[in-house]
Every structure is written in C-alpha cells, then in structure tokens.
C-alpha cells in the first residue's frame, strides 16, 4: 500500500518531493556524471600523448576549467535554491542543476500543471500536480537525450541541406519558437493577479538592467548572475506587496 504521507490530492508536496526513491535517482545522476568524467579524463590523458599534450598540461587545463566555473556555478546554485520551495531538493539538483535548465524545466512543469487546470505553487498545487510536473520535465529530458543521440546525425545532414536551401530557416524558426513560447508563458502570468504582473515586470526589468550592465560596464559576470538576481529581487518585491 502507499507509504504514509502519500496522498495525490494533498497540497503538502514534501512527502512525495523528498521521497527516498527520488534521492536514490538523484544520487544515480551524480554518480553517472562523475563516472563519465573519470572515463573521459583517462581517455584524454591517453590521447594527449599523441597530440603533444603532457599530463601536467592536462591537469592544468582541468584546474583552469575548474577556476573558470566557480562564478557560473554559484550563479546556477542561486537559481536552484530559489526553486527549492517549488520542486524540493532531489528534483532541483537533477533537473535545474544538472541535466536541464531553469527556463525550460519550469516552463515544462508549468505547462503540464496547466493541462490539469492547476497551477504550480498555488492552492491547486497537489502531490499529483508535482508528480505530473516532474514527469513533464523528465520526459522533456528523455526526448532531449533521444534526439541528441538519434536525431543529431540526421539533423546535421539536414542542417547542411537546409542551410543550402535557405539559411533563414535555421535562424527564423528557432527564434520564433523560443520567443513565442516565452512571451505566451510570461503573458499568461500577468492574467493571474496584479502581484503576478508586478513580479513579472520587476523580474524582466532586473534582467534587463543586468544585461545592459554586462554590455556597457563590461561586467560579464552580470550576464551569468542576471537570472538569479532577477528571481530574488522579483520575489522580494512580491513579498513586500503581499505583506506590506
């Protein structure tokens, strides 16, 4: 029978979101990535000999990569922490932190919740909706992996053909798809409540300022931190609007 605390209609999502099975799965994802990196590193050392690359130089490249990744990793961590209340640790670690990305996974979960006439977060956010949202993220990830493995060789041939036929296809179609999707998701939020509208605008404005700052003040770290800052500032404004 079902373990205690599992009730599809309960809005207390933590018993499901912190379910031991999810922790095991999250640990599995980490283990696979660590293993993959170990195997890659050994292969690189072996191949390096033939390509005039010493072991010391490989180690130096690993160190340089590690140092370069500190800032961006902290920026990703900030975004991930802000999503913890919504999806809890195992889902956030695997989907937002590693395999997926904040933008697409939140969009996928939100769309899936919408098909059940529910919203992420609100009073309709039950264990069932969490499960459906998480399944949508994961299925999106599976499709992503399958297309990476199966479609990439096909697309890369098609890519050359498409580019020959009409280079505009490759720029117009993805841009229109991405912008159409995010504008619709953003505008749908504005119809929920005035606080949602202001939160959206503050988030957009903060991001805009960060990107302008990155460009004109030549502070490229603002680029990486934009999403994290925008989420924190927008949530803070939402807090003051609802409590003040």
């Amino acid at each position: 029978m079902l373990p205690t605390g599992i009730d599809p209609n309960s809005t207390e999502i933590l018993p499901v979101a912190f379910h031991p099975v999810l922790w095991v799965a999250a640990a599995g994802v980490f283990a696979v990535i660590i293993l993959q990196s170990v195997i890659y590193l050994r292969a690189i050392r072996r191949a390096g000999a033939a390509a005039d690359l010493t072991d010391q130089q490989v180690s130096r490249a690993v160190r340089a990569g590690a140092v370069a990744a500190i800032g961006p990793s902290l920026a990703v961590a900030l975004v991930a922490i802000s999503l913890l209340p919504l999806f809890a640790t195992p889902a956030v670690l695997t989907r937002i932190g590693l395999v997926g990305s904040a933008a697409f996974d939140v969009a996928a979960a939100g769309l899936a919740a919408g098909t059940q006439d529910a919203q992420l977060g609100g009073p309709t956010y039950t264990q069932k909706i969490f499960a459906i949202g998480f399944a949508a993220m994961t299925l999106g990830g599976i499709v992503w992996m399958l297309s990476a493995l199966i479609l990439t060789p096909i697309l890369s041939k098609g890519d050359q053909t498409l580019r020959k036929v009409n280079p505009a296809v490759m720029t117009v179609v993805p841009a229109a798809a991405l912008l159409g999707a995010f504008f619709t998701l953003a505008l749908a939020e504005t119809t929920k409540s005035p606080v949602h509208l202001v939160t959206l605008l503050v988030s957009a404005a903060t991001m805009g300022l960060c990107l302008l700052g990155a460009k004109y003040l030549k502070k490229s770290w603002l680029h990486e931190w934009g999403l994290g800052f925008a989420i924190v500032v927008a949530l803070a404004v939402a807090y003051f609007m609802t409590t003040g």
């Binding site: 802000s82 977060g121 959206l200």
Partner: peptide, 17 residues
C-alpha cells in the same frame, strides 16, 4: 509565497534574456 510567485519571477527574466 516563493512557490506562488516563482513562475512570473522566472519567466520575466527568461523572456528578456
């Protein structure tokens, strides 16, 4: 509160990006 308003907080920034 974070749960309720995380979606507009994400989508606003992501759309601008």
């Amino acid at each position: 509160l974070a749960r309720l308003y995380i979606l507009p907080a994400v989508f606003g920034a992501v759309t601008v990006q």
